[in-house]
Amino acid sequence: MGQFFGSIYCWFEDFFGLELANYMWGLASPEQTTNLFIGIGLWMLGISFTMAAIFYYVVNHPQLNHWWGWFIFLLLNAVFNGIMGCQWVLTDYYAGKMYNVDPLTNQQVPLNIYESNCICFGISNMILSVLAFFIISCIIKWWSTNVSAAPFVK
């Protein structure tokens, strides 16, 4: 599962940085040795599924059976996932967990990861959540009573 999410997120590793990608894989710091892509990927899918289910089965209002009604929930999903992705890595950044140990001096050396890399990771998570929301919408929309045509309403 970690390989799956890691390979998808690494489509954007040029955007958020190779150092952060290696940190997320659990390769760059002795403080963090687990694959963080599993957790963030599962949360992204969970939030995307929840937002789609809320649109199609909880709100389910005929006035939202337009592309713009669906787009509102797509944007909400993207914002939630963008903030969550950014905060996921910023938490480790502010906690000082993003370092390596210099073998010669045995001193902690910070990785070349900055707040901008964490923000770019959040944007990457946002983009992937849009894709996930679209795919989930195409799968679950058929059983909705009022908005099953969204977003492809003519």
Rank of each mutant, 00 (worst) to 15 (best):
Y94D: 09
I139D: 01
Y9H: 15
I83Q: 06
F134R: 01
A78M: 15
W68G: 01
Q3S: 13
A95S: 09
W70R: 11
D92E: 12
N65G: 07
Y23M: 00
I136G: 08
G17L: 10
K154H: 10
S48W: 09
F152Y: 13
S137D: 01
G82F: 09
P110T: 08
P62D: 03
A132S: 10
V79S: 08
A28R: 06
A78T: 11
Y99Q: 04
G96E: 08
I38Y: 10
G122D: 10
M84P: 00
L104P: 00
W143R: 15
I83G: 01
T145Q: 11
Q3E: 13
C86M: 15
N125V: 09
F134N: 07
F4Q: 06
M84V: 07
F16C: 07
I113M: 05
N117C: 01
K141A: 09
M1R: 00
I127H: 00
N22A: 07
A150F: 14
W88R: 00
C120H: 15
N60V: 10
T145V: 14
L45D: 04
I38P: 02
E13L: 08
N117Y: 02
T145K: 14
V147P: 04
I38K: 02
S148C: 13
A53N: 09
L64N: 08
H61C: 11
Q3P: 00
W142D: 14
M24E: 14
G96F: 04
T105G: 04
F121R: 05
Y23V: 01
V58W: 13
G41R: 02
I136A: 02
